[in-house]
Design a protein around this nucleic acid. Structure first.
Lengths: 188, 188, 188, 188
DNA sequence: CATGAATGAGGTTTCATTCAT
DNA sequence: GATGAATGAAACCTCATTCAT
C-alpha cells in the first residue's frame, strides 16, 4: 500500500494548493480533504497540522520554482535580467500556490528533511544569481537574496489579503520593487 | 450620557487599533469590546460591521496622517523629499493599522460621510504632492498616488501577516519602493 | 405634562401596531420606540412588558372593531349576514393590527381596567349577535361567540405565522369556517 | 460508523419533533441537539438549515400520515367520510408537528429528493380522495386538496402559537372546517 | 490504514431590559 | 420624566481536531 499512500500524498498536496488558491491559506481542512478525495482523518495522519501541510506544498512546488529559475538563466543574457524575468514570472503565475514554496518553514521538525534541503539548494542558486547581478554592477549590494524572496512571498500570497490595487497587478508592483533594487536607484 | 458615550467611542476605537495591531484585522469583536472595557453590545451599537469599525479607525487616525504630511511638506525642501519623509514616517511609526484603515472603505453607506470626505481631502493633498514631485522631474510619471497608498498599506499592515523579514523592517522595504519610483528607475 | 404623556401613549400604541404588522408580534421593542419617536426607556415606563403593550393595542383598536360591528348590523338585513360581513371585514382588514384587540388579555393586572371592560362590552354585543343568528335558525347552536373570536384571532395574525396559502386570502378561509357554522352544516 | 450515524439521525429527528412540539418551530438548535444526545455540530452536519431539519421531520412522519390515510380509506364507506376520518385523526393525534413539516418545504434544493418525492406521492393520493369526494357530490368543488392541507397545518401546529381556545380542541375546529367544505355549505 | 462522525470551543450578532444622566 | 447607552444572555453557525468503526 506504499503506492496508494504516495499517490494520496500527492493528491492531498495538490488539493491543498488548489483550495488555498481559491479560499486563502486558512481554508477548511475538510474542504481540502474532500477535494483530494480522502477523509479528514487521512489528511491529519499525514500532516499533523496546517504548517506541515504548507511545508509539504512548499516541497512539492519548489521544483517548479527551480525550473523557472533555470529557464530564466538560460534565456536571459545576464544575471540581472534573469532575476527580473524570474521574479515577474512568479508574480504572474504564483498567486498563492508558490507562496508556500517561498515561505520559510514554520517548524523544522514537522517536515521531513526533504523540504528544508531542497529549499536550501534552491536558495543557494538564487543567491548565486543575486550575487552575480551585484558583481555585474547591475544590482544594489545592500539587498540580499532573502529580501527578494520575502517580497516574492508577500506579493504572491492570496489576493484577498492584498490591497485590491496590488492584487490586480502584482507583477507590476514587483517590477517597481525590482526597479528600486537596481544599481544606482538608492536615494535614501 | 453624551459625554460617556463619546468617551466610550474613543476607547473602542483605540482598543480596536491596539487589538488589531496584535491580532490582525480579523481580531474577535468580543476581545476589542473587552479591551475597551465595554460589552459586545455597545460595540455593535456603534459599529454594525467590522467595516464600520475600520472606517472609524481610519477617521480617527487620518488626522495624524494629515499632520505628518503637513510636517513633511514644511520641513522638506521639495515635494519628492517630503513624500519620502512622509512614507518613511508611516513605515517607522507602526501606524500600520491606520494605513490599513485608510485603504479599505468597503461600502460608503456603512460609514458616515465623515470618513469618506476626510479621506478624500487627504488623498487630494497627497495626490497634489505626488504630481508636484512628478512635475519636478523627480518621480516616475507612471506611478499614481493610489499606488503609493496601496503599497503603504501593504507594508504597514499587521506584522503577523507579513513575511518576518518584511515585518522586521517595513520602512526599509518602503524605501526600496520609493527608490523604484524615482525618476529614471524604471527598467521594465 | 399630562398632555404630552397621553400623546406619547397614543403614538407608542400606533407605532407598535404598525411595526408589528410589518415584523410580527415579536418585533424589537427598540424599533417600536423609535417609530413612535420616543426612547426605549419611555416605552418601558409605560408598558412593563410586551403583554402590556399588546393589551394597550387591544384597548386602542377595539373601538374600530366596535364601529365595524355597528356598521355591519346597520347595513345587513339580519344577524347572520351581519356576522358574516363583520367577520369578512376583519379578515380583509385586520392583519395583525386587530389581532391584539381580539386576543384575550394575558395578565389582567398589567392592564388598567380600561381594556378589560371595553372588551367585555364589545364581546357582549358580539355574543348578542351570535345568539340572535342562532335564534333566527341560521347558525348552529353549538358554536359560541368566543369560538368565532378565536378564529378571527387566528386568521388575523401576522402573515408570516400562517401557511402561505392561508396568508394569501385569509378572508376566503374565514368564509369557509363560517360556512361550517351555518345551520345544517354540521355533519359530525 | 454507519450504524451509529443512522441511529443518531433518527434520534435527532425525534428530538426535533419533541422539542418543537414543546417550544415551537423556532426552538433552539442547541436544545434539539442536547435532547438528541449529540453536539450542535452533529446536528448541523446533517441538517445545514432549520429547513432541512423540518423536511427530515416531514419525511420521517409522512409515513404515519400515509398509513392513517390508508386506514381511513379502508375503514370508511366512501371518500368523503374517509377524508373526514383522516382529518380528525390528524387533529386528535397531536401530530401537529408533522403536519407543519408537510406544509413548508422552503427550497427544494436544501432537502434531498426524498422528502419532495414522498410528499408528492402522498399529496397525489390525498388529492385523489378529495376529487372522489367531489365527484360523489359530497364536497364543494371550489376547495382544493392544498387548501385542506393548509388548514390542517394551521390547526395542528404548535399549541403556543394558537389561541388557547383553538389549542384546546383543534379537532373540533377542523370539524367546523370540514362542515364548511361539505356540498351545499357555501353561502358566500 | 482510511474514514467520516462527533465534539465543542469560538466567533458573530441580536435584543430585552436596566439605569446613569 | 425622558432618554438612549450599556449590558449580557442567547442563538446561530463554522471548523479544527479526535476517535470509534
Amino acid at each position: 500500500m506504499r503506492a496508494d499512500a504516495r499517490r494520496n500524498l500527492g493528491k492531498i498536496v495538490e488539493a491543498a494548493a488548489a483550495v488555498m488558491a481559491e479560499r486563502g491559506p486558512a481554508a477548511p481542512m475538510e474542504l481540502i480533504a474532500r477535494r483530494a478525495g480522502v477523509g479528514v482523518g487521512t489528511l491529519y495522519r499525514r500532516f499533523p497540522d496546517r504548517a506541515a501541510l504548507l511545508a509539504a506544498m512548499g516541497e512539492h512546488y519548489v521544483h517548479s520554482l527551480a525550473e523557472a529559475l533555470d529557464r530564466a538563466v538560460e534565456e536571459e543574457p545576464d544575471a540581472w535580467s534573469a532575476l527580473r524575468a524570474f521574479v515577474l514570472w512568479v508574480g504572474d503565475t504564483g498567486r498563492g500556490v508558490l507562496a508556500a514554496a517561498l515561505a520559510g518553514v514554520p517548524e523544522e521538525e514537522t517536515v521531513g528533511p526533504g523540504f528544508v534541503e531542497i529549499r536550501r539548494r534552491w536558495l543557494e542558486r538564487f543567491t548565486g544569481l543575486v550575487e552575480q547581478a551585484q558583481a555585474d554592477g547591475r544590482m544594489r549590494a545592500d539587498v540580499g537574496a532573502e529580501d527578494v524572496v520575502a517580497l516574492l512571498n508577500l506579493f504572491a500570497c492570496h489576493p484577498d489579503s492584498l490591497p485590491p490595487r496590488v492584487a490586480a497587478r502584482p507583477a507590476w508592483f514587483l517590477g517597481l520593487m525590482l526597479d528600486g533594487m537596481g544599481a544606482g536607484a538608492a536615494q535614501g
